[in-house]
Design a protein around this nucleic acid. Sequence first.
DNA 1: TGACCATATTCGATTATAATCATATATTAT
DNA 2: ATAATATATGATTATAATCGAATATGGTCA
Lengths: 123, 123
Amino acid sequence: MELIQVIKALSDETRLRILNLLYQGELCVCELEALLDINQSNASRHLNRLANARILESEKRAQYVYYRIDEDTLREYPFIKEILDNELVKVERCREDLNRLSQYRESGISCDDLKDGKLCFDS
Amino acid sequence: MELIQVIKALSDETRLRILNLLYQGELCVCELEALLDINQSNASRHLNRLANARILESEKRAQYVYYRIDEDTLREYPFIKEILDNELVKVERCREDLNRLSQYRESGISCDDLKDGKLCFDS
DNA sequence: TGACCATATTCGATTATAATCATATATTAT
DNA sequence: ATAATATATGATTATAATCGAATATGGTCA
């Protein structure tokens, strides 16, 4: 059942955190690594799982792969949107992640700079 | 995260089928066994998992344990209701289960009679 | 009381999932 | 070309989920 694949894809904290960030707009893999403080391999695998369930789509631009939420799937499964809109805001960890994202956006740093360790968060 | 426990509890076909039936009203364990054609130990385990996530509540009456959906939890997590209302109807298996439930209701058979094999479904 | 029945729980085997480390591939930059 | 970087993918290990069969528990009824 495809529905179950979708629900399973949502049943992991890291993947919910990824969706929470991407709900604000697309990000590349290395940005997600830095923002969520997870290693490259984990990031890639979780992203792959979400993309397999068609919750995410990806696009390669230059050396980076950008992931974003698949809007068609959101429309097909409105409960996903429900979770994104109403549940994740209740989760402390997800609110912190959004703060980090804001800091990152405001800093003007691009993902080209991430490797230089220019990104450091308060928390 | 409690949210993840809830989502995990929903990420299994048998458990979704159980919820689909109980959404029509409470049933005891042996009725669910017969309607879903699953064995006793599986029925009990899946029910327990749903009850642990507080998606179900149970009540013992005479020798039977009746399970029903916990309405408070439905209100707390509206996405569950979304799934029950909009997703399960799309699932062939769940529609078949509802047919069986109708037959069962119309037959006038009670769960006291189930063990005698009085219940037999078309499909 | 004792036999029976509905349900829960344990056990062992199997499979799925997640994390980590190492390596492969492909793109960019020099 | 060569080196460096971003991402994906094996291989391995640890942990959790699932299932069927058997057993335990606790209530019911003769």
